[in-house]
Design a protein around this nucleic acid. Structure first.
Length: 755
DNA sequence: CCATCCACGTTTTTT
DNA sequence: ACGTGGATGG
C-alpha cells in the first residue's frame, strides 16, 4: 500500500493528521469525525510510507472493545507485521510491562489483579482489625479516596502532606498504607496500581524506561480526554525522548471525571508540548443534520471547551423527537412497542436500536417491557459477568491454584462449599499466618501446628488444602477449561447451588458457569501459549461492553457511559428529567456548574450516537429507590430550540390523534410548551394535580370503567382498578381472580364487560 | 458454626 | 426495591 492509496479516502484534515508523524500532535476529533479511521491509517502510513518498524508503535485505548476494533482494522490494512504493534488498553499495556519487571518492584510475575470487590474485602478486613466504626467512615469511601490518590500518583507516604493533617486525613493515610502493604503481601495489584506501579517502575528504574522509550518511538492515545494524571505521566515518560506523541480526543466527550480523568490533559496539551501541532476534525460522517444540530445546541451551553463546530454533508433527516409520558412504565412501554412495530414493518433490525439511560437502575423497566413484548435485547453493564458470585468463586479457586499467596481468593473459598470452617477458624489461621509471615493458605497447610484449633477443625481444613494441592498438580497438565470443570466437580458446586437457591436462579448460575468454561476454551484456542495466569489476567481486565458482538440481532440496553464510541441508526435517550439526567448528584454537588457540564457532555455523547433517528423520552413520575418522584423535563431537552424538536403535540395535518383530551393527565405531552424552566430550583413540583381517581369516568371508546367486572379470554373475570391513557392505546389494570393484578392494553386485551 | 430474620443504606457513571 | 450485614437462636 502506497501513500496515495492510504490518503485517497481521507478528507484534507484527516490527511494532515495522518501525515504529521513526527513530534507531538493533538487531534481534536469531534464525534463521528472518523478518528479511528485516522488512527488506523496513520499507523499504516507510519509503516508503509515512513518505514517504521511495527514493533515501535504503541496505540492505546481505554476499552478492550476499542482495542479489538482498532486491531482488526489495522490487521486488514497492514497485514504482515501488524501483530508486532502494541494495540491495547492502558491497563493491558501496563500489565504486560509489569509482568516482565515485577521483581523490580517486589512482586512476583504471577501477581494477581484485584477488582473493586477484592479491594473491598481487603478493606473490610482492615476495618475489622483496626476496629473502625463503619458508621463514621465507610470502606467504599476510603477506597475511593485511595483510588483518587493513586490516580494523582500520591503514595501513602506523601498522602498526609497532600491531603492535610487533620484526624480524618491521618486515618485515611494509615488505612491507605495498610491497604497497600496487604496488597503487596498478597502479591496483588488493583486497577490503579497497574498504571501507578508502571509509572513507579519507569521513575525508579531508568534502565527499564530506556527499554520502552526506545521501543515505543511512536505513541498514539485514543480518547485522550479521559486520561488521568497517572496515565498522562505514563505516556509522557514514554514520549519524552522521541516526542512522537499523537493524542486523539474530544474535550466535549470527557465523561470520566469521577474516576480521575483530568480534562486539563487535553485542554493544556499545547502548553505542555509547546511544539505540538493541532489538527481539527470537524466534519461528521455519522449523523443527520438535525441530530448534529441538536448536539451542537446542547453542548454550546458549556463553558471552558475548545471552540469547534461540527458540520455534516449528510441529509437533514427527521427532526429529533421528544415524548413525555405520565410515568416510567409508559415510557418503557412506548420504546419497546415502537421498536417492535418498526421492526415488524420491515427495513430495520433489532440491532439498529439502542436504548440509553443515565443509571443502570433504569434498565429494569425496559427489560421487563422488552421481555413482555418479546423484543430481543441485550443488557450491557449492570452486574459485571465476572462479578457474579459463582464466577468469583470459581475464579478464586483458580487464583488460589495459581497464586496461593492471594489471601482474598483463598479465604473466599475456604468454606465454599461448606466445610465447617467459619470466621473464628479463619481468624485463627490468619493470626498464625501474620505471626509467621505466611500467607493464609500456607498457614492453613500448617493447621496441625496451630494450637488453638481442635483436631476436628484441622481435619476440615485439611480437606480444603488437599483439594488445592490436587488442583495445583492438575494445573500442570490440564487446560484451564478442564481445570475449571474439575473444580466444579470436586466441589460439587452444582448441588451446593441447588441447596441454597431457587430452581431458576440455579439454572441461571449454571449457565454462567458454562459460559465461563466457554470463555476458557475460547482463550485456549485464541492464544499460542495459554496459561492459567494468562487467563486470569484476561478475565480481570474485561468489561461488560467488551462482550457486545455484532453477530446477534438484539436491541442494546445500556448506560450513556457504555455507549461512548458506538453508533446506531436509532437511539432512544430515556429518562430526560431533571434529577435523573442531569442526575441529582450533580445538581446537589459542591460545584454544580462543573458537574452539570459533565452531564451535558454525557448528553452530547448520547445524542451523537444516533445516525438516523433520535428520540428523547421523559416520564412525569418514576420510582427512585422505592418511592415515587416527579421530575420536570431535563434542561438538556430545553436547550434544543423548540422548532427543531418534534414534540408530539398535534400539528396541523400530522401527529397522533388522541382519543381523549390530553389534559386529563397534567403534564403529559405539554413539556415542551411549558413555561421556561426555573434553573435555581429543579425540584419544584410543577405538576401538583394527581389524575383524579375518585370519580371513575368513562373513557371514550371503552365500554367499561374503573370498578366494572370484565372478562378476559385467558385470565377470566376480574375488576378494573385503573384505566390510563397510554401512547396509542388505553392501559387497563385489572385485578383477576387467581391471577392477581395485570396491566393490559385495551386494544389487545379484548376485555368484555360482565353484567 | 450456621441459618434466618430484620434493619439499613444504597446508587451515578467503569478500567 | 434490593442486597448486605448484623443480631439472634438453634
Amino acid at each position: 500500500m502506497d501513500e496515495r492509496e492510504i490518503l485517497e479516502k481521507l478528507n484534507p484534515e484527516q490527511q494532515d493528521a495522518v501525515r504529521t508523524t513526527e513530534g507531538p500532535v493533538l487531534i481534536l476529533a469531534g464525534a463521528g469525525s472518523g478518528k479511528t479511521r485516522v488512527l488506523v491509517h496513520r499507523i499504516s502510513y507510519l509503516i508503509n510510507v515512513c518505514g517504521v518498524w511495527p514493533g515501535n508503535i504503541l496505540a492505546i485505548t481505554f476499552t478492550n472493545k476499542a482495542a479489538d476494533e482498532m486491531r482488526s482494522r489495522v490487521d486488514d490494512l497492514i497485514g504482515f507485521g501488524s501483530d508486532r504493534i502494541w494495540v491495547m488498553t492502558f491497563h493491558a499495556a501496563c500489565v504486560r510491562i509489569l509482568r516482565r519487571h515485577a521483581e523490580e518492584l517486589g512482586y512476583t510475575r504471577y501477581f494477581t489483579i484485584y477488582d473493586t470487590d477484592d479491594s473491598l474485602s481487603v478493606m473490610k478486613d482492615i476495618f475489622r482489625l483496626k476496629k473502625i466504626d463503619t458508621k463514621r467512615i465507610k470502606e467504599r469511601q476510603v477506597l475511593s479516596m485511595i483510588s483518587s490518590a493513586k490516580n494523582e500518583l500520591i503514595s501513602p507516604e506523601n498522602y498526609a502532606s497532600a491531603a492535610g493533617k487533620d484526624f480524618f486525613s491521618r486515618q485515611v493515610e494509615s488505612l491507605y498504607a495498610e491497604y497497600q502493604s496487604r496488597l503487596k503481601a498478597n502479591n496483588a495489584m488493583d486497577f490503579d496500581d497497574l498504571i501507578g506501579n508502571t509509572v513507579k517502575l519507569f521513575k525508579e528504574h531508568p534502565e527499564v524506561l530506556a527499554i520502552y522509550e526506545e521501543k515505543f518511538r511512536y505513541l498514539m492515545v485514543d480518547e485522550y480526554q479521559d486520561t488521568n494524571t497517572a496515565q498522562f505521566k505514563f505516556v509522557s515518560l514514554l514520549a519524552d525522548k522521541y516526542r512522537n506523541l499523537c493524542v486523539v480526543g474530544d474535550d466535549d466527550q470527557s465523561i470520566y471525571k469521577f474516576r480521575g480523568a483530568n480534562i486539563r490533559n487535553i485542554l493544556n496539551f499545547e502548553q505542555i508540548f509547546p511544539e505540538s501541532k493541532v489538527v481539527r476534525l470537524e466534519q461528521n460522517y455519522r449523523s443527520t443534520g438535525n441530530i448534529l444540530n441538536a448536539a451542537n445546541n446542547v453542548i454550546r451551553n458549556n463553558r471552558g471547551r475548545k471552540a469547534k463546530k461540527l458540520w455534516t454533508e449528510n441529509e437533514t433527516g427527521a427532526k429529533v423527537r421528544f415524548r413525555r409520558f405520565p410515568n416510567s412504565f409508559d415510557e418503557a412501554e412506548f420504546v419497546a412497542d415502537e421498536i417492535r412495530s418498526i421492526v415488524r414493518e420491515g427495513g430495520s433490525e433489532y440491532r439498529d436500536f439502542a436504548v440509553l439511560y443515565r443509571t443502570n437502575a433504569q434498565s429494569r423497566l425496559f427489560e421487563e417491557k422488552f421481555l413482555l413484548m418479546n423484543v430481543p435485547y441485550k443488557l450491557v453493564g449492570g452486574v459485571n459477568f465476572y462479578a457474579r458470585k459463582e464466577i468469583k468463586d470459581l475464579l478464586a479457586y483458580l487464583k488460589t491454584t495459581a497464586n496461593a499467596v492471594d489471601d482474598v481468593a483463598s479465604t473466599r473459598i475456604v468454606n465454599i462449599p461448606k466445610r465447617g470452617i467459619g470466621q473464628t477458624t479463619i481468624t485463627k489461621i490468619l493470626s498464625y499466618a501474620a505471626d509467621g509471615g505466611l500467607s493464609f493458605y500456607e498457614a492453613a497447610k500448617d493447621a496441625d501446628r496451630i494450637g488453638s484449633l481442635s483436631a476436628a477443625t484441622v481435619k476440615k481444613i485439611r480437606s480444603f488444602t488437599d483439594l488445592i494441592e490436587e488442583l495445583k498438580e492438575d494445573a500442570k497438565e490440564l487446560s484451564v477449561s478442564a481445570l475449571l470443570r474439575k473444580i466444579v466437580e470436586a466441589t460439587d458446586y452444582e448441588n451446593m447451588l441447588r441447596e441454597q437457591d431457587d430452581e431458576d436462579v440455579v439454572a441461571d448460575r449454571l449457565g454462567n458457569i458454562e459460559e465461563l468454561v466457554n470463555k476458557a476454551i475460547q482463550y485456549e484456542t485464541e492464544n499460542e501459549n495459554p496459561s492459567l495466569s494468562g487467563f486470569l489476567e484476561e478475565v480481570a481486565l474485561i468489561a461488560d461492553i467488551d462482550s457486545v458482538e455484532d453477530g446477534d440481532d438484539r436491541v442494546l440496553l445500556m448506560t450513556l457511559h457504555s455507549a461512548k464510541g458506538l453508533e446506531f441508526p436509532n437511539v432512544y435517550l430515556t429518562g430526560m428529567e431533571e434529577g435523573v439526567f442531569p442526575g441529582m448528584m450533580s445538581l446537589n454537588a459542591e460545584s454544580p456548574l462543573e458537574e452539570i457540564e459533565e452531564e451535558r457532555r454525557l448528553c452530547y455523547v448520547g445524542i451523537t450516537r444516533a445516525k438516523k433517528r433520535l428520540t428523547m423520552t421523559a416520564a412525569g413520575e418514576r420510582m427512585v429507590r422505592g418511592n415515587v418522584e416527579r421530575h420536570p423535563v431535563s434542561r438538556f431537552v430545553r436547550e434544543i430550540p423548540r422548532d427543531m424538536l418534534d414534540n408530539g403535540l398535534p400539528e396541523s395535518g400530522s401527529g397522533v390523534r388522541l382519543k381523549a383530551p390530553s389534559a386529563a393527565i397534567p403534564g403529559f405531552r405539554e413539556a415542551v410548551a411549558a413555561p421556561p424552566p426555573k434553573y435555581d430550583n429543579p425540584y419544584i413540583r410543577r405538576e401538583k394535580k394527581e389524575p383524579s381517581k375518585s370519580a371513575p369516568k368513562p373513557f371514550a371508546g371503552l365500554d367499561y370503567k374503573v370498578g366494572d367486572r370484565v372478562r378476559h379470554v385467558k385470565y377470566g373475570t376480574g375488576v378494573v382498578t385503573e384505566i390510563r391513557e397510554g401512547k396509542r392505546d388505553y392501559e387497563v389494570t385489572v385485578d383477576f381472580q387467581g391471577w392477581g393484578s395485570k396491566r393490559l392494553l385495551a386494544a389487545f386485551a379484548n376485555l368484555v364487560r360482565e353484567e
